[in-house]
Amino acid sequence: MPQTFRNDDSVLRARVQKVVEERRALGLEGLVGGLETVLVTVESERLESAAADFLNTTGYKFETALSYGPDRACVLTHPGSADFLFRTRTSGPKPFADEPLGPKSTHLPGTRVEAMVFLCRDLRRYVDIQKKRGVRFLSDDIIRSDSWLFIQTAPSAYSALSFGFVQWLGEPRRHVSNLSPKADWTLPKPDAPHLKNIGVFDHASVRVRAKDRDDAIVEFLELTGYEFSMAVYVDNLNSITNVARLANEPYAMVITSGLGEAAAGQEGPTEMFIKNYGRRIHHLAFRTERIEDTFAGLKAQGMEFLLELVGSKEEGLKQTFSRPSKETLIVNEYIHRYEGFDGFFTKSNVTLLTEATAKQ
């Protein structure tokens, strides 16, 4: 089938401008802040091994273990960065049960980056506004503990990603509560020098269908205070990498899609990823110092990569992709931005990284 449409930034930017105006008119501006927590759901028998794999490949450390009724969780932290909460879902509703998987993800049906959780300064007001807009949440009302207020959207029809919103009651980032008491287990942090070079969580990239690209971006902007920043087109790979950012916050949301409907066999790596794994987060990126030494150290400990380091000081940044984790299916990106680089990506690096995903 020939390509019947092509995504167009002029159309997207017109919609983005309307979102910004509507956020102000509705009183949403300033209600939602930066990323607080990344919720990663894993198979019940793999919680410890998935968290250990994350500790072994990032600069994060084990903070605490939690119980959610019969389910278990643990919080992994890094100074100045969003927390990661790994948890199981053996009881209660499973919000992603109906989301189609691919042949390379069916063996881990309960594993995915489930939700990005953002700070909210007045959750009651936020929920009231969003419900009037028609936003669907997983719970009828805000979940209240003695440490936090929390609510989570139903999975997006466009990105198959959920978004959470938390208001802390007292101490920020206190995950322990009467609804999530502390559990008595821990995991060690590997004492590897190269892991100390891996810093804060920089961005996540979700893969969406070409036809859902604009809707996925607009939806994210409607739910948060983020702004659309840039789009990098890689025509020969039928791919667009789109970036949304929030001023003075380290985390950016990346939404990657195809250019448009493509003929069979011409889908490109982005759409092939969706066929193989289903719609989901493809990679998590971490800022990395001494990236050459870190890359060598990760290789020495047995980590495999989709490509060598790409980029240079002259181009402004250097990056690489790991192979997907056997525990979570997630690719790790390690990225170093050189001093003075004022962009977010370069087209040359995006092209090489996109091309490398075909090796998955």
Results as ranks from 00 to 15, higher is better:
P2I: 14
F5M: 11
N7V: 06
R23V: 00
E29S: 13
G30E: 04
L31A: 06
G34P: 06
T37I: 15
V38S: 09
T41D: 03
E45N: 13
L47G: 10
A50N: 08
D53K: 06
T58G: 11
Y60S: 05
Y68D: 03
G69K: 00
G69H: 05
R89Y: 00
P100F: 11
K104H: 08
P109R: 09
P109D: 01
T111Q: 08
T111E: 04
E114G: 08
Y126K: 00
G134K: 00
D141S: 03
I142H: 01
S145F: 03
S147I: 04
Q152T: 12
A154H: 13
S162M: 13
V176T: 13
S177H: 02
P181S: 08
A183D: 15
D184A: 15
W185H: 09
K189A: 14
N197S: 14
G199K: 07
F201K: 00
F201M: 14
V206F: 05
V208S: 05
F220R: 02
F228G: 03
M230H: 13
S239A: 15
T241S: 13
L246I: 10
A252K: 13
G258A: 08
E261W: 11
Q266F: 15
M272L: 15
T288D: 06
T288W: 01
T288Q: 02
E292A: 12
G297K: 04
G302M: 03
K313Y: 01
E314A: 11
I335C: 12
G343Y: 03
N349R: 05
V350H: 02
T351Y: 12
A356M: 13
